[in-house]
């Protein structure tokens, strides 16, 4: 079964390596991994889709929690959530068959964001099964290239996966002023 695990991590060099290395070493299968900044300065959010039974996912959570740079781990599986993924698709398409492609785009509420005489790029944000259906429908036209961001998810209503735990002032100053989170000057940055 696929689980959606959210890890809130310190935005520090090496954190992505730590997480990736953990998954490799423990033999966990990741379907997707999406990383980005959050509402809180210094915290990044990783949304990880893991394939495995409950025992494996519990191990994933515990092992992630052991990493010092991981602040909070939540399993959103079974929670009332919205999940989305963004896909860009480059489809072979000339004037002759464009109408057919555009029909599909409309049905799936996708958008055309680039057009050339022989191809176009479609963008769609949706849940995965709808994305899969879109791709299946476009395949006969010739999918030249596809990129997917991986799943992101958020619980509905008041509940959040956020950290909501402010770093003490002293530590925040240390992190921001002392360059523990430098931007672009380290050879081993995680992003």
């Amino acid at each position: 079964m696929k689980h959606t695990v959210v890890a809130m991590v310190e935005d520090r060099p090496g954190v992505l390596t730590r997480v990736a290395s953990l998954f490799r070493r423990r033999g966990f299968n990741i379907d997707s991994l999406a990383v980005g900044t959050t509402e809180e300065q210094g915290i990044s959010r990783m949304t990880i889709v893991v394939d495995g039974d409950d025992g494996i996912v519990q191990q994933v959570e515990h092992q992630l929690n052991k990493l010092i740079d991981v602040v909070k781990v939540s399993d959103l599986t079974g929670e009332d959530t919205v999940t989305r993924e963004l896909v860009l698709l480059k489809v072979r398409c000339g004037a002759i068959n464009r109408r057919g492609v555009l029909d599909i785009v409309e049905i799936f509420r996708a958008q055309v964001i680039d057009l050339s005489p022989t191809s176009l790029i479609i963008q769609v944000v949706a849940e995965e099964d709808r994305l899969d259906a879109l791709v299946e429908n476009l395949r006969p036209y010739g999918v030249m290239e596809m990129v997917r961001t991986g799943r992101v998810a958020m619980t509905r209503g008041e509940q959040t996966a956020a950290v909501h735990e402010e770093e003490p002032d002293e530590l925040q100053r240390f992190h921001t002023e002392s360059g523990r989170r430098p931007e672009g000057e380290l050879p081993f940055t995680s992003k």
Binding site: G14, T17, R18, S21, R25, I68, S178, P182, L186, F188
Partner: peptide, 12 residues
């Protein structure tokens, strides 16, 4: 990195 509880590269 994978052989420790935690590690650091101190740049300052």
């Amino acid at each position: 990195m994978p052989a420790v509880k935690h590690n650091y590269l101190v740049m300052r």
